[in-house]
């Protein structure tokens, strides 16, 4: 068993924070999906732990739970399937999976 596997077995990941999503006024998808997206306001826009930026269309994707590396998210406005990873700056970044 590797070191990583030992740590996982004895020190399980803390539970994920949950988030109540509200409509942000994003109107580019059907109403039932709107709470999962919001407009990005540029480089100074600080993303919450349940948010990641779509690299294809620059819309912020939101989840009802804290996002972690390896999670899969969908960007409906540009039809992309993405996987969450860790960027060079330490923040969460999404990568397209075709």
């Amino acid at each position: 068993m590797s070191e990583t596997q030992k740590r996982t077995a004895t020190d399980p990941e803390p539970p994920r924070a949950r988030f109540e999503l509200e409509d942000t006024g994003f109107n580019e998808v059907p109403k039932k999906y709107r709470k999962f997206y919001r407009r990005w306001s540029g480089e100074k826009d600080e993303l919450a732990p349940n948010e990641v930026l779509c690299p294809v269309c620059k819309v912020v994707i939101r989840s009802s739970r804290e996002l972690r590396e390896g999670d899969r998210v969908y960007c409906m406005p540009c039809m992309s399937r993405l996987v969450v990873g860790r960027g060079q700056g330490g923040g969460l970044e999404a990568t397209v999976r075709y």
Binding site: F19, E20, L21, E22, T24, A48, N50, E51, V60
Partner: peptide
């Protein structure tokens, strides 16, 4: 930071 609110732990 978005306007998302944390849900209660029991949710």
């Amino acid at each position: 930071m978005s306007d998302a609110k944390r849900r209660p732990p029991h949710d």
